[in-house]
Deep mutational scan, measured.
Amino acid sequence: MIVFVRFNSSHGFPVEVDSDTSIFQLKEVVAKRQGVPADQLRVIFAGKELRNDWTVQNCDLDQQSIVHIVQRPWRKGQEMNATGGDDPRNAAGGCEREPQSLTRVDLSSSVLPGDSVGLAVILHTDSRKDSPPAGSPAGRSIYNSFYVYCKGPCQRVQPGKLRVQCSTCRQATLTLTQGPSCWDDVLIPNRMSGECQSPHCPGTSAEFFFKCGAHPTSDKETSVALHLIATNSRNITCITCTDVRSPVLVFQCNSRHVICLDCFHLYCVTRLNDRQFVHDPQLGYSLPCVAGCPNSLIKELHHFRILGEEQYNRYQQYGAEECVLQMGGVLCPRPGCGAGLLPEPDQRKVTCEGGNGLGCGFAFCRECKEAYHEGECSAVFEASGTTTQAYRVDERAAEQARWEAASKETIKKTTKPCPRCHVPVEKNGGCMHMKCPQPQCRLEWCWNCGCEWNRVCMGDHWFDV
Score class of each variant (00 low, 15 high):
residue 419 P to G: 03
residue 47 G to Q: 03
residue 128 R to H: 11
residue 412 K to H: 11
residue 417 P to A: 10
residue 403 W to S: 03
residue 231 T to Q: 10
residue 62 D to Y: 09
residue 237 T to H: 12
residue 336 G to N: 11
residue 67 V to E: 00
residue 438 Q to A: 04
residue 109 S to R: 12
residue 304 F to Q: 01
residue 308 G to E: 13
residue 418 C to N: 01
residue 433 H to Y: 05
residue 427 K to I: 08
residue 461 H to C: 00
residue 168 T to Y: 08
residue 220 K to M: 12
residue 43 V to W: 00
residue 194 G to R: 01
residue 288 P to E: 08
residue 162 L to Y: 00
residue 50 L to T: 00
residue 237 T to S: 14
residue 306 I to W: 03
residue 127 S to M: 11
residue 164 V to G: 03
residue 398 A to D: 08
residue 169 C to R: 01
residue 20 D to L: 06
residue 83 T to S: 13
residue 451 C to G: 15
residue 438 Q to C: 05
residue 320 A to N: 13
residue 12 G to D: 05
residue 109 S to L: 03
residue 273 N to E: 03
residue 65 S to R: 05
residue 19 S to C: 09
residue 135 G to P: 12
residue 192 M to E: 02
residue 52 N to M: 02
residue 176 L to S: 03
residue 9 S to K: 03
residue 319 G to W: 05
residue 399 E to R: 14
residue 375 G to D: 14
residue 290 V to Y: 06
residue 285 Y to E: 01
residue 118 G to E: 12
residue 266 L to V: 14
residue 431 C to A: 15
residue 59 C to R: 00
residue 324 V to S: 06
residue 110 S to M: 08
residue 321 E to S: 10
residue 121 V to D: 15
residue 385 G to P: 08
residue 336 G to L: 09
residue 457 C to N: 00
residue 409 E to V: 08
residue 133 P to H: 11
residue 241 C to V: 00
residue 194 G to E: 02
residue 360 C to Q: 03
residue 332 C to L: 02
residue 315 Y to M: 06
residue 246 S to G: 03
residue 373 H to S: 02
residue 142 I to A: 12
residue 166 C to W: 01
residue 333 P to A: 03
residue 204 T to P: 03
residue 414 T to I: 09
residue 364 F to D: 03
residue 189 P to E: 07
residue 455 R to L: 15
residue 129 K to N: 12
residue 299 K to P: 05
residue 124 H to C: 08
residue 132 P to E: 14
residue 400 Q to W: 12
residue 256 R to I: 00
residue 379 A to F: 11
residue 366 R to D: 03
residue 79 E to Q: 10
residue 428 N to L: 13
residue 10 S to E: 05
residue 171 Q to A: 10
residue 140 R to A: 11
residue 83 T to C: 11
residue 325 L to D: 04
residue 273 N to F: 04
residue 247 P to L: 05
residue 64 Q to D: 13
residue 108 S to H: 10
residue 414 T to Q: 10
residue 257 H to R: 00
residue 330 V to G: 03
residue 217 T to Y: 09
residue 427 K to L: 07
residue 122 I to L: 14
residue 371 A to P: 13
residue 222 T to R: 10
residue 106 D to E: 10
residue 388 T to H: 10
residue 192 M to S: 04
residue 204 T to F: 05
residue 87 D to R: 09
residue 250 V to H: 03
residue 248 V to R: 00
residue 24 F to L: 13
residue 342 L to I: 10
residue 97 R to C: 09
residue 116 S to H: 11
residue 102 L to S: 10
residue 348 R to Y: 05
residue 148 V to E: 01
residue 106 D to H: 09
residue 455 R to T: 15
residue 310 E to A: 08
residue 164 V to F: 10
residue 41 L to N: 01
residue 242 T to S: 15
residue 10 S to I: 04
residue 201 C to E: 00
residue 258 V to I: 05
residue 343 P to H: 06
residue 232 N to Y: 01
residue 137 P to S: 13
residue 132 P to C: 10
residue 340 G to C: 06
residue 390 A to W: 08
residue 428 N to A: 15
residue 98 E to N: 11
residue 257 H to V: 01
residue 379 A to S: 11
residue 411 I to E: 12
residue 143 Y to Q: 10
residue 425 V to M: 12
residue 206 A to L: 03
residue 256 R to F: 05
residue 147 Y to K: 02
residue 192 M to H: 04
residue 223 S to M: 07
residue 248 V to G: 00
residue 99 P to V: 11
residue 11 H to F: 04
residue 42 R to E: 06
residue 342 L to V: 10
residue 40 Q to Y: 06
residue 50 L to D: 01
residue 354 G to V: 07
residue 139 G to Y: 11
residue 81 N to Q: 13
residue 242 T to N: 15
residue 136 S to N: 12
residue 382 E to D: 12
residue 319 G to C: 06
residue 441 C to T: 02
residue 393 V to N: 05
residue 16 E to K: 10
residue 141 S to I: 09
residue 186 V to G: 01
residue 366 R to W: 05
residue 191 R to C: 06
residue 90 N to H: 12
residue 239 I to L: 06
residue 203 G to P: 02
residue 214 A to W: 05
residue 392 R to K: 15
residue 166 C to P: 00
residue 309 E to Q: 13
residue 464 D to L: 15
residue 355 G to L: 09
residue 426 E to L: 10
residue 191 R to S: 09
residue 449 C to R: 01
residue 339 A to T: 15
residue 412 K to F: 10
residue 65 S to T: 05
residue 63 Q to C: 10
residue 153 P to W: 05
residue 29 V to I: 13
residue 441 C to Q: 01
residue 419 P to K: 04
residue 433 H to Q: 04
residue 76 K to S: 14
residue 189 P to G: 06
residue 129 K to H: 12
residue 328 G to R: 05
residue 104 R to L: 08
residue 430 G to S: 15
residue 177 T to Y: 13
residue 261 L to S: 03
residue 317 Q to N: 14
residue 13 F to N: 02
residue 451 C to V: 15
residue 296 S to Q: 00
residue 115 D to C: 05
residue 49 E to V: 03
residue 103 T to I: 06
residue 153 P to A: 10
residue 453 W to K: 01
residue 204 T to Y: 05
residue 70 V to R: 02
residue 101 S to N: 12
residue 165 Q to P: 01
residue 439 P to I: 07
residue 261 L to D: 01
residue 208 F to Q: 00
residue 77 G to T: 11
residue 394 D to N: 07
residue 216 P to W: 06
residue 263 C to P: 01
residue 211 K to P: 02
residue 120 A to P: 15
residue 76 K to Q: 14
residue 91 A to I: 12
residue 162 L to S: 02
residue 108 S to Y: 06
residue 104 R to C: 13
residue 164 V to P: 03
residue 422 H to P: 01
residue 423 V to A: 15
residue 393 V to C: 08
residue 206 A to Y: 02
residue 98 E to V: 10
residue 422 H to S: 12
residue 395 E to C: 09
residue 33 R to P: 01
residue 253 C to E: 01
residue 227 H to C: 13
residue 100 Q to T: 11
residue 427 K to M: 08
residue 454 N to H: 14
residue 129 K to F: 09
residue 49 E to I: 04
residue 318 Y to N: 01
residue 41 L to W: 01
residue 375 G to R: 07
residue 276 Q to G: 13
residue 71 Q to M: 07
residue 323 C to F: 11
residue 15 V to K: 00
residue 457 C to I: 01
residue 333 P to Y: 02
